[in-house]
Design a protein around this nucleic acid. Structure first.
Lengths: 225, 225
DNA sequence: GACCTGTACATTGTATACAGTATGGTGTCG
DNA sequence: CGACACCATACTGTATACAATGTACAGGTC
């Protein structure tokens, strides 16, 4: 019973299961194309198959696992093609969300980006990778919230998870990635804080495109062309 | 037992359930904010709650139903805000997919768009709305397939369903919508067949934006600002 | 009369049991 | 020795049973 359950159920089991599995996949503890049998997962987390099935549906939704009817579920393979697909979509949508976030008038919440910026710098300096990525994701989600577009946010949250898998992978090969990532994130935050929608969109698209290009070599080496 | 089940299970129950519910929501037979209890749905289709739960998860993924933990599931409300969100995302992604489809070298499959075009004209002329929408969706999916980008296709298929709800609604108020829709679809197909990616993207973005604008009045009247 | 409390009911969430299918190995026949 | 059929097994898919929670209503208290 690894999953501690308070007597009054606060969060749903499928969602927290999905979150844990997500992290294992992103961090690479669950390897690409590894088989996930419902019973194993259920046993591992001390729950029954019902919530596991729902958790796996959630992961499937975000492209982290692949499901073949009546055959089973595997951790989604990583490939350059998949990487390119995710980033192509991300560029378009992150640009959009940056513009809408920049146009937000909720100045207080916008200012909170500064806090995340500080935490990013801090964790990057101290080499705490896990917390860096956590802060990075939090920053992204703050932007999504600022944009105040639930549909867009939903789409991007899904893509974010897939992207993170590649980012984590790239980081492990080339730790400098994080420094680059920090610089770009900072510039995007700045653009959003400037409240110039079009500019924020342009900067975001440009920087994510650059990150994409600079990660491509790592990805190509790892997963072939 | 409304759902006929062949002894050898060909398609999964949750998926086909989701498809049927989808259609009911899009067509408005299931009204906005109507409660969906798992047992009712299960009984209505002669299956147990397990596949119903999974079907509802699928609908939730596509934003057609809203789920509140431990409280239940409702048909997602329609609103101008939601409409704007969906179209904002669609413009960006449909533009992208049109570009990638235009750049495809699979000429034979590209030519098949002509067939859909003919069917659209035909069904529009004959006033068979249901088949018109069906052909329209099929055309979109052909473009998604041409673009050969699974991630993008996954995102767009989700948005398509939400958009269709508003399109169907708008059509009922103003049947001319379909003629406009046919003209625009034709122009998008043409642009893709020209194999000029940038042009196809520009045309698609422009036309969908125009459709969006021209639908806004209907939507505003129906769901308030 | 307004508000709180307790209880019954409806419904979701989870566990378990059962059915049906894919897979791998074994044996048999050519 | 290879190919095919058959069977055992493991797993997914579905049904059902049980647990837990949210809701509505009745009754009581201030």
């Amino acid at each position: 019973m690894l999953l501690q359950r308070p007597s009054r159920l606060t969060v749903a089991i499928p969602e927290s299961l999905a979150e844990m599995l997500e992290e294992e996949i992103v961090m690479g503890r669950l390897k690409s194309e590894e088989r996930l049998t419902e019973e194993d997962v259920a046993e591992r987390y001390g729950v029954s198959r019902s919530p596991v099935r729902e958790a796996l549906r959630l992961l499937e939704r975000d492209g982290l696992v692949i499901r073949e009817p009546r055959r089973g579920i595997w951790v989604a393979p990583m490939s350059q093609r998949d990487f390119d697909e995710v980033y192509t979509c991300r560029i378009a949508l992150e640009g959009l969300v940056a513009r809408q976030a920049a146009e937000s008038t909720e100045i207080e919440r916008k200012q909170e980006l500064r806090g995340v910026q500080a935490e990013l710098a801090e964790t990057q300096a101290s080499g705490d990778v896990r917390r860096f990525f956590a802060a990075d994701v939090r920053g992204s989600f703050m932007i999504y919230d600022l944009a105040d577009n639930r549909t867009l946010s939903r789409l991007l949250r899904g893509l974010e998870k897939q992207a993170l898998r590649y980012r984590f992978h790239a980081y492990q090969r080339n730790p400098d990635m994080i420094k680059l990532s920090l610089e770009d994130t900072t510039r995007i935050f700045d653009a959003i804080l400037e409240s110039d929608g079009a500019a924020a969109q342009a900067v975001t698209e440009k920087l994510i495109r650059e990150i994409w290009q600079s990660m491509r070599d790592e990805v190509r080496n790892s997963f072939g062309s």
